[in-house]
Amino acid sequence: MKGFWRDAAEFFPILMNGVALTIVVTIGSLLLSTVLGLIWAMMRVSGIRALSMLSAGLINVIRGIPIIVLLFYLYFVMPDLGVTLTALQAAILGLGIAYSAYQAENFRAGIEAIDRGQIEAAQSIGMGWWLTMRRVVLPQAVRIVLPPYGNVMIMMLKDSSQASTITVAELALQGKLIASSTFKNTSVFTLVALMYLTMSIPLILLVRHFEKRAGKK
């Protein structure tokens, strides 16, 4: 135990560099997946057949490819096609695209849960599709969508570790590098696990808060 604390004091600063990258990857891909997910969901509920089929197809393709393969594709294959991305860019793009499919399905479920009468009321005062979405549907859907959205945040935090496979030195990869050079596997990976857990706990509490609020009305 004493050894662990000594190791922890030694490795903590290096691992914190990894934490910084983990946070960058998580927030970056969270934002990207949210924007893309919203776009797919809006296409899906647009009522325009071509758009909704395109969106359904895209979502299925994205869902059917493992995140790690998507990352490899972006990082190792895209340069052959003339698009060179840094590891960090590829990681954010890959995770963002991969998670956009889940975000889209979550958003769509939230939008479709809104009572049809709400949309008719909006139409009856002359609102068009976009105004109805912005003023009536989306503000109500947010309440429904937030708890699962919080869960996606937690999953993304943990899945950001997959960026290590394309050389992004985030927390998991930093840990692996330290462990392989010091052989202190137990100390290092315990520390890494604790650091992920520490980052997850606020998110878990946030989800609980969302769930309580959604349950109220």
Binding site: D115, G117, Q118, E120, A121, A122, Q123, S124, I125, G126, V136, P139, Q140, R143, K217
Partner: peptide, 17 residues
């Protein structure tokens, strides 16, 4: 037309938010 002809629904359909 909709701005000239308003509608009142059986189930009110007020915006709860």
């Amino acid at each position: 037309i909709r701005t000239q002809v308003s509608m009142v629904f059986q189930r009110f359909n007020l915006f709860p938010h």
